[in-house]
Structure formats: structure tokens, C-alpha cells
Design a binder for these strands. Structure first.
Lengths: 229, 229
DNA sequence: CCAAAAGTGTTCGCGTTACACCCATGT
DNA sequence: ACATGGGTGTAACGCGAACACTTTTGG
């Protein structure tokens, strides 16, 4: 392929803000950099975009290479372009955020990438490059999206209880929610299918398990339905 | 500046979806391409990003160069990266959307750029590259943002009437709104300052003019206030 | 005096909120 | 039996939706 415009070009990277939820708090997946610059620092997983792949593909590829994660929910966040965001040269980075079912991936991520680690959001160390800015943007976006699109389920196991769902919303939004009102509203959408299973844990009554019905959501959405919590 | 990673690089462009509102309908600013590819086609204003400028700067610069527009509201939209979106070579484009006060700029844009023209959204011709996709994304974003952030004022003159504001909302959202309810709600926010001026036009009662108070909005926003229509 | 848009209040219904007790289980 | 989280209904309130007439101007 011929290069028509022979001006110096910025390099292009993708960086991924990977969220997980472990039943109590929101977590972030970071990798420890093995190379300069910022050697030894924690950073968002990511890397250079190849000339023959889309940004989505690059993000998925980097995620798999660096953390072992596959088939996660992934959405473009924002493109960061401060001139000095990389000390080496001009690098523009397209940020993504990913939502993962922590329970499914915890072990794999830990083994595949020895230098990958989950941090509770409040305990996130200082980050390389402008990754702290990216993280801030991602958290804002997650909060916003969670309120009017059913993406929270991407952070929960396929089968979950209403309490888990509520805890997730409380953790991400940073508010307390009324149990009865929350259940009434969520179940009113008719998007959760009760399973013939219960979740047993600890010395108390077992909880009904549900799964989210994405097909039904797709239909409702087309009719102008708005998921809003 | 040294190039550390000597792999082939995609070229980077910015493209701007420029909206205007003329008191009845939403319009889009396009330029006619003078060069191949898509010579003679209509396209979004935009161009290549220089290695020493941010994306925001590039968007503002291109807008000024190609359309004469300055000091418009500008916000990053999405980054488009289909491998074949440009027939020449790999080009990744960061799209922006801009909101302009049509009344202020109509003449300038027409004179500075002979090949720039405003189109009502329904009459937009077929566009070069993947610009139709970009436009679709921009319209969705505009609709979404308009409902929960006070960006509509960017499309109106500094002094405007409540009817103009309502028409804007109706045009963008594609719905009819109740006049009394609309006024009640908007004025209830206490973000519009009534001026000692009226808007006279045609054979009817003159309308009260208002201006938006961005400072007050900033304060309210910090306190968790949500502008929502 | 007529046309055309500006401006103004009230009622009704539904959705959000607030709130407390019993249930099923494990130890 | 007791500790722990699961599960349930109702009443008050507030906000959004529906709705029609008077006012001011120019022609």
C-alpha cells in the first residue's frame, strides 16, 4: 500500500480500562510494565495498533496477549492526544473500556499474565503515561452508561441474584438503594428470567438466581423502551 | 523526534460533523471535494492531523481552514477505523461534532469557502468515505446529549426566545412538546436570564428574550444537579 | 378587525419513595 | 435458638402529562 501523504505520523495505540466486580467492589485490571518508559510502573493493558486491523480488533488482541482475557464486553471510550503524553514520541491512544465477569476469568488472568493484577478502584496505584486520566474518563462513562443501559450484567456471572445486581449498582454509582424498590423496578422490566436454581452461601436463606434476557431487551429497545435505573 | 517503532503506520485524520439550526430545521455543513478520491462529492470538513497538534487543535484548524468557522462548540465523537474506509491507504479518522450559531456564521461560511454549503438533514446528499456512518453516529449523540446537557444553546443565538428553544428541541428530537410544560420545566431550572428586550418579528406579540447562564449551570452541576428535558 | 404567535394554571394519574417484618438456612 | 441475608406490600408524595383561552402586535 502506497503512502500518499509523506508527513511524519503519530503512532497509534489502544489502551483498555478493564473493570471487574467481585461481589463487593469494583476492580481494575493493570499490568506491570517490563520495558521503559515507566518500567516497573502499573499501566492499562494496551499496545500499538497494526496497520491491517481495526481499533476494536487491536484492543481485543492486546487484551488477549497481555491478560489472557477473551470475549469480554468492549466499547470505545475516547481518543487521547496530548502532545507529550508519551515521552518517547508522538503517540495517540484510543482508549477502550471492558467489562468482565470476574469469577470466570480471575484464575486465567492471574496465570496467563504473571504481571497482571486486579486492584480495587480506591487502591489503584499511580499509573504510567496519562492512564489516570483515561481511568477517570472510563469511570464516568461506566457510571453514566450503567444508569440507562443494561451493561451491568456484563460484570456479573451469567446466573446472579438480585442482591448481587443491587450491590453492583451501589458499588459503581456510589449510592445506597432501597431493596424493595430496586427489585420492584428491575423485575418490572421483565428482562430477568428466574431460574430453577438458588444460590446457597452462608447461614441464611438461599437466593433466587436469574439470568438477563438480551434477546428480549433487543426487541424492547427497538420499540423505544428505555432501561433506566 | 525519533521513531522508536518502525512499523507501517496508519494515517490520522479528523472529520467534523457541523450542525446548525435556522429556526425550523437542523442543518449540516458539507464541503465539496476538489481532489480525488471522491472528487466532486460532498464530504465532512476535515483533514490530516499534524504530528505536533492535538486532535482538538486539528479539528479546530481544519474547520477554520475549510469553512471559516471559529469558536464553535466542539466535542470528540468517535474514532472510525474500518480498514478500507479510505481507498488510498489505511486512514483512521477521529470524528468530532460541532454546534454553531447559524445566524452568526451563515455569511462567513458561505464566503470563505465557496465550496461549503448547509444542507437540511433530510436533504443531505450521499457522502464520501464512511461519512454517512459518522453523520448517523453524530445525530444519535446529539439527540442523547441534548436531553441531559444544556448544549442546545450552542445552536441558538446568544439571545433567544423560549419558542426558538422549543423548536430546536422538537427539530432535533423529532417529537412535539407541550408549550406550557416545556416553559415551566425550562424556567424552573433557573438557568435562563430574562433580558430587557423582546424579539419582534411578524404580525404578532413580541417574545421575551433570554440568555443562558453558563456560570450558574457550572455551579449547579457541581452540586449534582442534572439538566434533563 | 383579523391573523399569528406569545404567554399563562390547574387537574389528574402514575411512578418514585419511604418504610418494617417474616422466611429459610447453617452453625 | 440465633445470626444472616432473602424476600415481600402499601401509603404518601411529587412530577410529568394533558389541556384552552387571553394578550399583543402588524397588516
Amino acid at each position: 500500500m502506497k503512502h500518499v501523504y509523506e508527513y511524519p505520523r503519530a503512532a497509534l495505540t489502544v489502551d483498555c480500562v478493564v473493570f471487574g466486580f467481585d461481589g463487593g467492589e469494583l476492580k481494575l485490571l493493570l499490568i506491570e510494565r517490563g520495558l521503559a518508559p515507566f518500567k516497573g510502573c502499573w499501566a492499562l493493558p494496551g499496545g500499538f495498533v497494526r496497520v491491517d486491523e481495526t481499533l476494536d480488533q487491536a484492543a481485543l488482541r492486546e487484551l488477549e496477549e497481555e491478560t489472557g482475557l477473551e470475549k469480554v464486553f468492549l466499547e470505545q471510550l475516547y481518543t487521547f492526544s496530548s502532545v507529550d503524553r508519551d515521552p518517547r514520541e508522538r503517540v495517540i491512544s484510543v482508549a477502550y473500556y471492558a467489562l468482565t465477569k470476574l469469577a470466570d476469568h480471575r484464575t486465567r488472568a492471574a496465570t496467563d499474565a504473571a504481571d497482571a493484577q486486579w486492584f480495587p478502584i480506591p487502591d489503584v496505584p499511580s499509573l504510567a503515561f496519562d492512564h489516570a486520566d483515561i481511568l477517570t474518563t472510563a469511570i464516568q462513562r461506566l457510571r453514566g452508561k450503567l444508569r440507562y443501559e443494561p451493561i451491568g450484567f456484563e460484570l456479573l456471572p451469567a446466573k446472579f441474584t438480585l442482591s448481587q445486581l443491587q450491590q453492583l449498582y451501589e458499588a459503581v454509582l456510589g449510592t445506597e438503594l432501597d431493596k424493595r424498590n430496586f427489585r420492584k423496578k428491575v423485575l418490572g422490566f421483565d428482562l430477568l428470567i428466574p431460574l430453577n436454581e438458588t444460590h446457597r452461601e452462608g447461614a441464611h436463606r438461599p437466593a433466587q438466581l436469574f439470568r438477563f434476557d438480551p434477546v428480549r431487551y433487543g426487541k424492547l429497545k427497538k420499540k423505544g423502551f428505555l432501561f433506566e435505573l
